[in-house]
Design a protein around this nucleic acid. Structure first.
Lengths: 256, 256
DNA sequence: GAGTGGTCTAGACCACGTA
DNA sequence: ACGTGGTCTAGACCACTCG
């Protein structure tokens, strides 16, 4: 009939966070204090706090305390992936957009040749034994990792090209592909939402209870061949994915 | 130097799930068995399992055991929100798309008048004291809740119209708005990714470690007035958001 | 009735951060 | 030095499922 103690405690704390009596950055009472207040053991308090942690509401720091999370999200625009790249060296279009917001962006790039993971292999329609080239980027803002961007290409298409050098390509990899006769005219976009894998947690320094959106964009040439597959991993506490739509007039007509 | 016991246990189990030696639906060894195998207390085993649960990999059922989750995702197409609605009574376009996949869809609709939550108020640009009409839907597949769709309208625009009746509108609320002189020509789409709130967990029967994508679509008339704000809550374990893009040719030109 | 997970206790020792 | 969270133990009782 009655709720378990840990539930009561987490509900109380969640309400306090919701109505701002525990604002962003505020420190929760210590586990011992909460245990005394509610007349339960520290283990039970920890269970309550674990619930909030897994909801992404608080995060604990050893030796310091448990704090209400403060999260601000920046706009991520999937369609920018398809736009021409501005000619600013060492900085792609994503970064240029972020600079406007007064943060200092940076990125690390590495390039590797490997047998693709299944989700890439099926999208690029390469054979089982074929290898691909991946350009892996970690984009950071003010020194903190922001998101990752892994671009996969069939190896035979990009072998020896600029795409295989681990430096920024100012005009964009899409432009390089186009110059080599693989211009993309269509893309399929997919967004998955899930909890991060351990290596993503590490790579992006994710707190507990932080889900990720995985944006997979596959680009096709006029002939219908996939030539590029980009996997962006976007931590939920740092991104809002936004785009605009115009009502297609022809669709309006065909409705009647 | 060495990892804590609970970490070792969760890592082992996660690997077993990843390489399918513990396939979808499989039962994990019981907590007591794992405690014996690793020589730790049941509390420590439970901590390890809680980690996997919060990653969405397993779920526990009291009295039965802990099982590897089996999740299948259906395609959600945001642009369908803007397309004309097919004239099938009791079934909107979303549902029509799902039927093709051989599942049996259903939905519940209720209508309410209320002061909007802040995120709706700011998007619809209504005054502090103004009320809105909301059409709340829970869409289900094979009797299981799939997602929710809450459409908000400024009350003065829809007062007395068909939109205020809690039944399906075959031709779509957008069409009704258009007939009343509020045709939408543009929409702003936003997708947020976060852990669910307790009421969402309940409404959508979400397991632990299941994040949600929140798709907010705001529709504008030619005059630039927002007339509709739709909030879709999409559980991550049941959806993949997908759309297609064509490369805008004019953008290509302006790049050089 | 036997086994499972859910809840909870009352301790313990440790690493860490701050003063 | 002290308080914080991180880890862990060895029990306990309960509600639940299943054969």
């Amino acid at each position: 009939m009655s709720a378990p103690h840990h539930r009561r405690i987490s509900d109380d704390l969640r309400s306090a966070i919701a109505d701002r009596s525990l604002g962003p950055g505020a420190r929760l009472p210590s586990e011992s204090e909460l245990g005394q207040k509610y007349g339960v053991s520290r283990t039970t308090v920890r269970l309550a706090i674990a619930t909030l942690s897994n909801e992404g509401l608080v995060s604990s720091e050893s030796g310091r305390g448990t704090f209400v999370r403060d999260r601000r999200q920046l706009v991520y625009r999937p369609q920018e992936e398809f736009r021409p790249q501005p000619a600013s060296p060492e900085m792609d279009r994503f970064m240029a957009a972020r600079v406007e917001e007064g943060r200092s962006p940076s990125q690390t790039i590495d390039v590797a040749i490997l047998t693709p993971p299944e989700e890439v292999r099926s999208r690029l329609q390469v054979a089982e034994d074929e290898t691909v080239v991946v350009r892996r980027r970690i984009r950071s803002l003010d020194g903190e990792p922001w998101n990752t961007n892994d671009s996969y290409f069939p190896r035979k298409l990009v072998e020896g090209s600029e795409i295989m050098t681990p430096v920024d390509i100012a005009r964009g990899a899409n432009q390089v592909l186009a110059e080599m006769g693989h211009r993309q005219i269509r893309a399929l976009d997919e967004v998955y939402v899930r909890m991060p894998r351990p290596e993503e947690t590490h790579r992006l320094k994710l707190g507990p209870g932080t889900p990720v959106a995985v944006h997979v964009a596959t680009g096709f040439t006029e002939a219908g061949d996939p030539v590029r597959c980009v996997i962006n991993v976007l931590p939920g506490d740092r991104h809002v994915i936004a785009w605009e739509r115009l009502r297609p007039e022809d669709a309006t007509e065909q409705s009647q």
